[in-house]
Design a protein around this nucleic acid. Structure first.
Lengths: 185, 185
DNA sequence: CGGTTGTTTCGGTAAACACCGAACGCTTTG
DNA sequence: CAAAGCGTTCGGTGTTTACCGAAACAACCG
């Protein structure tokens, strides 16, 4: 059957996206399927994905579940078709924020929790080397701050985000007029 | 020999950091070594790392090279010792920026380049579905913008970064007074 | 210049992971 | 209430990746 992937550039995109995924700890099938759905002009049933990418049906199923876990793909119903169909989020900001949210939830938050425990325990532990106590404490504080920042930024309306991004380094002018002008660090 | 890792909390930190790494596509040895160096109060020679973590000497060697590739670990000389010693960057902002810089260089920049090519070619390709052309174009623009933003932010002096981070969502007030107040999206 | 100490390279092995396909269960349909 | 369609689960398999240990290489010292 004819699919999007017949086009060489589409294929290049999907393959690259797949490799990209692997480098960030996402498995190839998952990211390939995401790429395919992102380019599709209509919801696709699992079968078609299977055929287009040459993957096993079961693999596609679990990959789709994973993508839904990130909330960047969702199930939709199509008139007169019993099968589930899937569409990808096409707003790229939304996509990025959701991926970030989920990775934070899965990996960062537990890390913060652990660091919190360790830092707390070390605070009263006289036997531990001073530098260890300080550095684990700093790490905890640092990651917590980043996490807090993300939670705030994530709640800004999208147009604001776009505007901030376009501002780039110039935002610095607002925080401390003198510092905002440097181009070097 | 007695090492930092005798302390259970230090061990917990190192192990967790190692697992963390694997989830982000960094191999376990590399991130464990990084964690160990981060907590160490003095430069460590490869031997000590080998012994402390129970890794093969060769593995430690390649991992150290990798860490130096990220510029978050550097070689130092210690008086009266022929061996190379290694220390980790302890400024966490610096660490984060360097990791980001390197990953951008390795993964994002090539992606932008590829997307640029594809987008350019598709612009003149009448046979390609309209949505594909648009979406690959959008993706290219989006990632390029993010990349540009990073390059600017990266050059801000560190205190400014800290200040901006502390501001959190409040930065939004400067870009468009009405939008900055929302807590929901 | 040997011998010593330290580092890197490389081929093989073991562990992790992705992926497949068969079997199972649920839902719809004739 | 069979039978077919669809989705998921699960055990096994192949591929990738990390890791080890031996050998090669380089620097230094007597």
């Amino acid at each position: 059957m004819k699919t999007l992937l017949d086009h060489p550039d589409v294929k290049a995109f999907v393959l690259h996206w797949g490799e990209m995924g692997t480098q960030w700890g996402v498995n190839r099938s998952v990211s390939q399927i995401h790429a395919l759905l992102y380019l599709s002009d209509r919801p696709l049933p699992a079968d078609e994905i299977t055929e287009a990418l040459g993957l096993a049906r079961s693999n596609v199923s679990t990959a789709l579940k994973e993508l839904q876990g990130y909330a960047i793909v969702r199930r939709v119903h199509v008139e007169g078709d019993r099968r589930d169909h899937f569409v990808a989020e096409t707003d790229l900001w939304e996509m990025l924020l959701r991926i970030a949210a989920e990775r934070k939830r899965r990996e960062i938050d537990p890390t913060i929790a652990l660091l919190g425990e360790l830092a707390e325990r070390l605070r009263h532990d006289e036997t531990a080397p001073a530098l260890v106590r300080e550095r684990i404490g700093r790490m905890h504080e640092f990651i917590s701050t980043l996490g807090g920042w993300y939670e705030q930024v994530r709640c800004l309306p999208k147009p604001t985000l776009v505007a901030l991004m376009k501002l780039g380094g110039k935002v610095a002018r607002f925080v401390s007029p003198l510092k905002g002008k440097s181009k070097e660090r």
